[in-house]
């Protein structure tokens, strides 16, 4: 099993690390790791909330404000770690089986989607207008069961890390290598 890691940047300038793992010729794992939650930003947000609460407390002289602030900070942190902050997004491509998308949250929660290879039409890089930017993104095109030429759905990948084009090209090439094997030998990639 080969494994290599390369540094990249996201569309908003954040550092990213792309780890490529070659499990076998037709099985490859690509993981994008984002920087972990910094203690500095955590303490900055916490102290900002508490200072604001203290200001309100001085004005209103109601101590409920302080307890509410502590409560809000804690709940906010849990929600943030559990539902918002994604530490790692990975893509497991298995030529004969399908593509598995995993996002791991900072709390350790993982959400996984699996797409069968028979439904995958192609993996492409596309352009989109996102917020106030035009960015490149990687997406999986799903086959339309009614129309074999058509595309029924577009599944965007790496939505939270938004890597830049050089990184996307790397992932794209890796995926295409495996998808090409499937095209070359459609019979052999079936169940043996």
């Amino acid at each position: 099993m080969q494994s290599q890691e390369r540094p990249f940047r996201s569309a908003s300038g954040e550092p990213l690390a792309l780890r490529r793992r070659q499990h076998s010729a037709s099985c490859r794992e690509l993981a994008l790791r984002r920087p972990r939650l910094q203690l500095r930003s955590l303490s900055a947000v916490t102290s900002a909330v508490w200072l604001a609460a203290y200001g309100v407390f001085v004005l209103s002289e109601n101590s409920m404000v302080l307890s509410a602030a502590i409560f809000i900070t804690l709940v906010g942190l849990i929600i943030y770690l559990h539902f918002v902050k994604i530490d790692q997004e990975s893509l497991l491509v298995i030529g004969s089986l399908g593509i598995q998308l995993t996002s791991s949250y900072a709390s350790g929660k993982e959400s996984t989607t699996f797409i069968e290879m028979s439904r995958v039409k192609d993996v492409v890089i596309n352009e989109a207008i996102y917020m106030q930017k035009v960015i490149y993104y990687l997406c999986i095109l799903l086959k339309d069961p009614q129309d074999p030429q058509g595309v029924s759905e577009v599944v965007p990948l790496f939505q939270s890390s938004q890597p830049r084009l050089d990184c996307l090209m790397e992932v794209y090439k890796s995926c295409q290598e495996i998808l090409d094997q499937r095209k070359e030998a459609p019979q052999s990639s079936g169940i043996k």
Binding site: D122, V124, I125, C139, L141, V151, M169, Y172
Partner: peptide
């Protein structure tokens, strides 16, 4: 009839 395009390989 394809909607999306790919970059060059």
């Amino acid at each position: 009839g394809r909607v999306k395009e790919e970059p060059p390989i």
